[in-house]
Design a binder for these strands. Structure first.
Length: 427
RNA sequence: GGACGGGUGGGUGAGUGGCUAAAACCAGCAGACUGUAAAUCUGCCGCUCCUUGCGGGCUACGAAGGUUCGAAUCCUUCCCCGUCCA
């Protein structure tokens, strides 16, 4: 495309950046673009006509909270939005009740309507921490899916072949492992394909595990006489354990509504090697910028800890603002580097009234820890104590029967392990 | 509908009558080490009570009953999953 070929075209061209520039921005961090030439063609087309591309991301509100893993692909949707394209955020309120078989080794229990609605609401609040709420088109797939009748479903299903459906890894491995597959799970990709048809999307985004679904959507769109969307997938974010994908059920996640300090601590606990992919997928740093940092660390000019601190700060800043990020960082330094008490160490209280058993006015330490919520059970509390994880006012106590005097009101500092520090008020 | 195989702790998975709160591995937790980590090493890893002891009690191997001095292990029924055949 030559610049300024015709005046009419030129006007609309100003609306969008040059295709190459857009493409570079969109490709950053992407796992796959299928097929890339088509995306280029679509970008060129939109630049010529001045019509933005319709780009959508479908999310099933299966849990009430989003975590950083979800933001990877949201960020990509935002990139399209930044470039002037139409971002459509689709809430899979209907499909959530089927459950996406992707990456699942067993059939999920279907969600209830009320749960889905409640989740959808909190999702939206969280999503707009990243997307521009003014410019985002929000849809729900119950708009059309709940209106389909049996005939529509049969027609839809006739557009796809069982053998192709069974090609997907999730189904194949479940079959191989003698795991159950319910028939309704086969419907999931087909019904969500209906979304793509309704939305007349040009591009659909998804995590790379969604590739199969996105491609079915593309096929079905064509069956319904549309051009066929481009599928853009993003890599799966590895969770805090550095092994498996970030997910709430695995507990290796950072929720985006989490407390700033919690967030900071969690990110600091990831391994050095993992932080590079976090930088790529969760920040706006350019690919070259990241590469340069990496070289600096390798050369010994920059300490990896510094890189991680700045990553953690950036994350907290994204969701809680700059002030919170600064505070979290300094607290963290105090607690972990200087081994001191963080600014906002919680205060818990123990009074004569809420102790159980033993002598008047005294409690065993193990019992106190349980009551204070510092240990899930007395057995666990005893273990912690015996292993030297518990400190009172800086002194390690190894005797679970250490008695705490409840008669003298005072405040002392309790430390359970490295991560749990609080003040104890005795009343 | 028939034949066969299977359901064990957060996960994988051993265990076919007492030595089994249940091997092993993974995950998790704690301590040491460190730059927060990771890796490594050490210990722990159902709940509860106390006189904290290689202590007592309770709960646990899909569910419910039964046999037995004693059952994850044997029997019966039921539920669930898979494979093959129709």
């Amino acid at each position: 495309m030559k610049q300024g070929a015709k005046p009419k075209v030129k006007m609309s061209e100003q609306k969008f950046k040059p295709v190459e520039e857009q493409l570079a921005y969109l490709k950053k961090g992407a796992a796959e673009i299928i097929p890339e030439p088509e995306l280029v063609a679509k970008l060129e087309g939109s630049r010529k006509t001045g019509k933005p591309l319709r780009v959508y991301l479908g999310v099933d509100p299966t849990a009430p909270d989003l975590h950083l893993g979800h933001t990877v692909v949201l960020r990509k949707l935002k990139h399209f939005q930044d470039l002037g394209h139409t971002a459509v955020f689709l809430i899979g309120d209907f499909s959530a009740m089927i459950g996406d078989p992707t990456g699942v080794s067993e059939t999920r229990p279907p969600l209830r309507r009320e749960q889905v609605d409640a989740n959808a609401k909190t999702y939206l609040e969280q999503v707009f921490k990243i997307l521009d709420s003014e410019k985002t088109e929000v849809r729900r797939n119950s708009e059309w899916l709940s209106k389909m009748n049996a005939e529509d479903v049969v027609r839809l299903c006739s557009h796809y072949r069982l053998a192709r459906m069974l090609e997907r890894e999730d189904f194949r491995s479940r079959l191989a492992d003698n795991q159950p597959i319910s028939v309704h799970e086969l419907l999931y990709p087909l019904l969500t394909a209906r979304d793509a048809v309704e939305l007349k999307s040009d591009v659909e985004l998804g995590a790379s595990e969604q590739k199969f679904n996105l491609l079915i959507h593309r096929d079905i769109q064509r069956e319904y006489g549309l051009a066929g969307q481009v599928a853009l997938t993003m890599p799966i974010l590895v969770g805090l354990d550095g092994q498996r994908k970030m997910s709430k059920s695995l507990g290796n996640y950072v929720g985006i509504t989490e407390d700033p300090y919690e967030m900071f601590k969690k990110i600091m606990s990831i391994s050095d090697s993992l932080m590079w992919s976090y930088l790529e997928l969760l920040t706006d740093k350019t690919a070259e910028g990241i590469r340069k940092l990496q070289q600096d660390v390798q050369a010994g000019n920059t300490h990896p800890k510094q890189v991680k601190v700045s990553l953690a700060s950036q994350m907290v800043k994204d969701f809680h603002g700059e002030e919170a990020a600064r505070k979290a960082a300094s607290n963290w330094e105090r607690q972990f580097s200087d081994r001191q008490v963080p600014d906002d160490a919680p205060v818990k209280t123990l009074s004569k009234d809420n102790h159980v058993g033993s002598d008047e006015g005294k409690v065993y330490l193990s019992r106190a820890l349980l009551q204070l919520g510092a240990a899930p059970s007395r057995a666990e509390a005893e273990r912690l104590i015996k292993q030297g994880a518990v400190e009172l006012d800086g002194k390690v106590i190894k005797d679970p029967r250490h008695e705490i005097d409840l008669k003298t009101p005072r405040r002392c500092l309790v430390r359970v392990g490295k991560k749990n520090i609080f003040y104890l008020d005795v009343k």
